[in-house]
Computed example of a mutant assay.
Amino acid sequence: MQVFPTFALYNDRNENIVKHYTDTDEQQLAEQLRCGNAAAMRVFYDRYGGLLTAVCARYITDSESLKDVMQDSMVQLLTHVSDFKYRGEGSLRAWATKIVVTQALRYLREEKRREWQTIDWDVADVPEEDDPPVSDIPPDVIQQMVRRLPTGYRTVFNLYVFEHKSHQEIAQLLGIKKDSSASQLSRAKNLLAQMIRQYTNTQQ
């Protein structure tokens, strides 16, 4: 599935334009995206596509659904790029990441409605285990471990750890209780700790 349908407008004659935008800062790149410049769209995806896909993959584990959510995210990005306000280098990336997370949560609420409704959000608190050492574990292995977490655990863990949301903010985003968010996070950490220990033992 092609993420940017407008890439069909790109051809070899735009090569010099692409080279120019490759070295362009975020503010200039955003301005060209607002103008619908196909070369700028190509550079944007080359620069941020991998990162945004990795963010989305933390929430969406099915490959086809991942493509759909990324496609929707890119459409939202291009549709609402006029709303973007430049606040320094890195703000375009942060803005795009927020849109991807929003689309992923929307998918989980709408497309996974039955599964979402059957999640036992109000699980009992459990003691948190000590964090195992992760410095020697490749990042892609850690990411796969996160993707193996149950939907509720994975969603809360991602929002808390990667998006730096408070339990109150997570509760509002997911329509759950604040204490439920804390419980889900605790259980997610414990499951990850078990996975990490198992991985470490197999490497010895």
Rank of each mutant, 00 (worst) to 15 (best):
D120N: 15
R93P: 04
N190P: 09
L92P: 02
F4Q: 12
S180G: 04
D62W: 04
C35N: 15
Y153P: 04
E128D: 15
I196W: 10
L108C: 09
M1I: 13
Y59N: 06
Y45V: 00
I170W: 03
S181N: 01
E115H: 00
V55E: 10
N14C: 04
D12W: 10
V101W: 08
T97I: 02
D68V: 04
M74H: 00
K177H: 09
Y160I: 06
I119S: 03
R87V: 02
F4W: 05
E110M: 10
P133E: 12
K178C: 08
D72G: 11
N14I: 00
E64M: 04
D131Y: 11
Q76R: 11
I176K: 00
N14G: 05
F7R: 14
I142N: 01
M195V: 05
G175Y: 00
R148K: 14
I176N: 06
Q204A: 14
L108I: 14
S73A: 12
E31G: 10
G88S: 11
R197K: 15
M1V: 11
E169F: 06
G88Y: 12
M74P: 06
T155V: 13
T97N: 04
V156E: 08
G90L: 09
E128R: 15
R93N: 05
D25E: 07
D122K: 07
R187Q: 10
G175V: 07
G49K: 02
V123N: 08
K165C: 05
V100T: 01
F84L: 04
M70A: 00
T24N: 02
R58V: 01
E128H: 04
L51W: 01
Q184C: 10
T202R: 15
A39N: 03
H80R: 09
F7H: 15
K165I: 08
E26K: 01
G49M: 03
Q144D: 13
Q103R: 13
T155Q: 08
T61P: 02
Y10I: 10
P127H: 08
L66W: 05
Q32G: 09
Q203P: 09
A96W: 02
D23V: 11
R154V: 00
V134S: 12
Y48E: 07
L149G: 02
F7E: 15
K98H: 08
Q144L: 07
K165S: 06
V126A: 14
S183I: 06
R197M: 10
F44L: 09
D120M: 12
S166E: 11
D120V: 14
R13Y: 11
P5F: 13
F162T: 01
S180Q: 04
N14K: 13
T200P: 08
Q27N: 03
V146Q: 14
R34Y: 01
D68M: 05
D136L: 14
L185C: 00
N11M: 08
I196Q: 11
D136C: 13
L173C: 03
R109C: 06
A182T: 07
F44R: 01
Y48C: 06
K67I: 05
R87M: 00
Y153C: 12
H20N: 09
L191Q: 15
L105C: 02
A54E: 13
A188I: 06
V43K: 07
V134H: 08
Q198H: 12
E31W: 02
Q71C: 07
Q71G: 01
W121I: 00
R148P: 06
N11F: 03
D83H: 02
K85Y: 06
